[in-house]
Design a protein around this nucleic acid. Structure first.
Lengths: 143, 143
DNA sequence: CCCTAATACTTGTACAAACAAATAACATAT
DNA sequence: ATATGTTATTTGTTTGTACAAGTATTAGGG
C-alpha cells in the first residue's frame, strides 16, 4: 500500500498538483510585481483597467475579472488610489456606482512590469512547447 | 488587436489559467474540510501525520510537505493540538525538536473527511478521463 | 409620492499568510 | 569549560482574505 502511489486516486494526485503549481506560479508572479510595490491583486486590477482603453469601469466590472472577487475589492482599489495609479469618482448617472480609470502613473508602472512579468512567465513555462501549453489550457478549462 | 486574444502570449494565458484553477480547486477542497471545522492547511497536516503511521514527525518534517511552509506552521499545529487532533511533545534526544503524532480523534476526523474529499475531487475532475489526468499531471510537473 | 425591495459599494471583524526577529538547545573548536 | 555558530521552533507585526452586516442610491409597485 505504500510501495507505490497506486492507493492514491489519480484525481487526488491531479488536484494536489494543481493546488501546488497554482501556489507556486502565484508566488512567482507576486514577487515579480512586488518589485514595484504592488500586490498581484493590485496588478490585475491595473491590467483590467488598462484593457478598457480609457473607458471607465465600475467596481463590479473589475470584481468579476478578479480571482478573489468580493468586498475586499474596495480596499484593493483604495491602495491604488492612494498611490495615484487609479482615479475613482462617483458616476453622475448612478451615484451608487464609481468610475475607475487608470492614470498615466499607473500605465507607467504597468509598462515597467510588462517586461519583467513576461520574462517570469516565459521562465515558468520554458519546458513546455506551444502544443503542450495549448493542450494544458484546454484540459484545465474542463476543471 | 482586441478582435481575438492573439496579442496575449500563450504562456500568459496558461499561467492565468493555472492561477485561477488553482484558486478554484483550493476553495472547493477548503470548503469541504471546513464542514469539520478545520482549514485546508490543518487537513494537510493531519494527512501528513497519518501517512507516517505512528512514527512521530518533527515540525520540519511537516513543514516541508506543506504548501505554505513557514513559521506559521507552529500556529497551524497549535490549533490542531487545541482540538486534540494532534499530540505535541518535546523530543527527548534533541529538546529543540518536537514530536508530532496524530490522535485517535484526529484519525476519526480524517475518516469522516476522506469520503467527502474524494467526492469533491471526483466532482472537480468529472470531465477528465484517466489519460487526460495523467497527461495533465505530467505536463504540470514541468512547471 | 411613499414604501419596499433591489443594487452598488463600503466597513467591521475574525482569521490566515508573509516576513522578520527572537529564543532555546545543540555542535564544534579552542 | 567557554565562546561561537548552527539548528529547531516560536513569537511579533503587518498585510491579505473571508464572511457578514451596514450605508447610500435607485427602481418599481401601490
Amino acid at each position: 500500500m505504500s510501495i507505490d502511489d497506486s492507493s492514491i486516486p489519480l484525481s487526488r494526485k491531479l488536484i494536489t498538483t494543481i493546488i501546488k503549481k497554482g501556489a507556486k506560479v502565484t508566488e512567482t508572479i507576486s514577487s515579480t510585481v512586488k518589485e514595484q510595490g504592488i500586490t498581484l491583486q493590485q496588478f490585475n486590477v491595473l491590467r483590467i483597467l488598462r484593457g478598457r482603453k480609457g473607458k471607465a469601469a465600475s467596481l463590479q466590472d473589475v470584481s468579476k475579472d478578479m480571482i478573489h472577487a468580493n468586498s475586499n475589492t474596495t480596499r484593493v482599489i483604495d491602495k491604488l488610489v492612494d498611490k495615484k495609479y487609479v482615479d475613482r469618482k462617483q458616476c453622475p448617472n448612478d451615484r451608487r456606482q464609481i468610475e475607475l480609470t487608470i492614470t498615466k502613473k499607473g500605465l507607467d508602472v504597468l509598462a515597467i512590469l510588462d517586461d519583467k512579468v513576461n520574462t517570469a512567465e516565459a521562465e515558468i513555462t520554458k519546458d513546455l512547447n506551444e502544443d503542450s501549453m495549448t493542450a494544458l489550457i484546454n484540459e484545465l478549462e474542463k476543471i
